[in-house]
Amino acid sequence: MTDFLTTQQGRRLAYVLTPGTGPTVVFLGGFKSDMTGTKAQFLEGWAKERGRAFLRFDYSGHGQSSEDFLDGAIGDWAQDAVAAITALATGPLVLVGSSMGGWISLLTAKAMPERIAALVGIAAAPDFTEDSMWASFDAPQRAALERDGHVALPSEYDGGPYIITRRLIEEGRSQLVLRDPLPLPFPVRLLQGSADVDVPQEVALRLFAHADSPDMTLTLVKGADHRFSNPENLSLLAETLDSLSL
């Protein structure tokens, strides 16, 4: 059953909390995605089978949560993650971040490193507003962003084009994690598809090289796409979590 949490900022976040033992597994979804996606639902089933605590939620402007998506930015959604975790989960955490959620998980880990037992990134996309979006804009797109406050990008997913706001780009620059040291003093597992055209494997390799972790692995899956949601991919995700033995 979906419940709601009101943050200190007045944002109303939809969430589903599965009670259980062990470090709470927290799923952090991607850009314009929500907590009803394949990976979130799969992980909830995985948690119930093992009696593990599990939290999935919608960032503000996503899914069933309040606010307009176009008003949000990376810092807001990281703030939502910290608020949801602080209010709803006790003890150690295993963060599972998909795409943008990989970036949010790194920001969450920076905000509360003492609570992180492990981190799993699925096609993690740190710094994508700068390195993927802004870096790929041509002169007319950059001019439109400055003039109109937004620019439309084509999308292969449902819901039409992505509307990228100037605030998303500018605020994202205050949240970058690949420009400064990134200590991750806990096990880190990165899963990446070789056929991912949204977050290419070079991003995973850069994160792998940049982060400082005593126990970090990168698994590159031949042929897997950005969704990373077919049965084989989901089985690998379950195996990865099981292997952490937390």
Rank of each mutant, 00 (worst) to 15 (best):
D148P: 08
M112E: 10
T7H: 05
K39N: 06
G223H: 01
L93D: 02
V197N: 12
L190T: 07
G91W: 03
L244E: 01
N233G: 08
A204V: 01
E156R: 13
G72Q: 09
F27H: 06
M112I: 08
M100W: 10
R12P: 06
T7R: 06
R52M: 03
K48D: 08
M1L: 14
P154F: 11
A139K: 14
E232F: 09
E170T: 07
D34Q: 08
A14H: 13
E44I: 04
I85C: 07
D58K: 04
S60W: 04
T6H: 07
A152Q: 15
E202P: 03
K39T: 08
L237A: 04
A87T: 04
L88S: 07
A81E: 03
G22L: 03
L184H: 05
V151W: 11
G97D: 11
L218K: 07
H150Q: 15
E49P: 06
G30I: 00
I122Y: 12
Q64E: 14
S174P: 07
A152E: 15
A53C: 00
D76I: 10
R115V: 07
L220I: 13
S65A: 04
L43P: 04
S98W: 06
L153D: 14
P154Y: 06
F57A: 03
L236K: 03
I122T: 06
I164M: 05
P231F: 11
A117Q: 11
A109S: 14
D3Y: 15
Y15K: 05
P126D: 09
T165A: 03
W77H: 01
D68P: 12
L88E: 04
M100E: 12
Q9W: 15
G29H: 02
S194Y: 02
F54M: 12
L17C: 02
P231M: 09
T18Y: 03
L207V: 08
L95M: 11
F42K: 10
A124I: 09
F42P: 02
G22S: 00
D158M: 11
G91N: 11
R11L: 15
L191F: 10
M1S: 15
I85N: 04
G91M: 05
P23C: 02
T2V: 14
P187T: 08
E239T: 12
L17F: 05
A117M: 12
T90V: 14
L95T: 09
L190G: 11
L145P: 05
Y59Q: 01
S194G: 02
H150W: 15
I74H: 03
D242P: 01
A135M: 04
P183F: 05
R166F: 06
T21W: 12
V203I: 13
K48Y: 07
E232S: 15
A152H: 14
Q9A: 15
F208A: 11
Q41I: 13
A87K: 12
R50F: 01
P23T: 03
Q64G: 13
G172D: 02
R12D: 10
S33Q: 10
Q175D: 05
S243Q: 13
L95E: 10
V199L: 02
A47P: 00
T129Q: 15
G97K: 08
L13E: 04
D225C: 10
V16T: 13
G45Q: 02
P92K: 00
G37A: 05
F228C: 06
A40E: 08
D58V: 05
L236C: 03
S243P: 00
I122D: 13
A125K: 15
R52I: 01
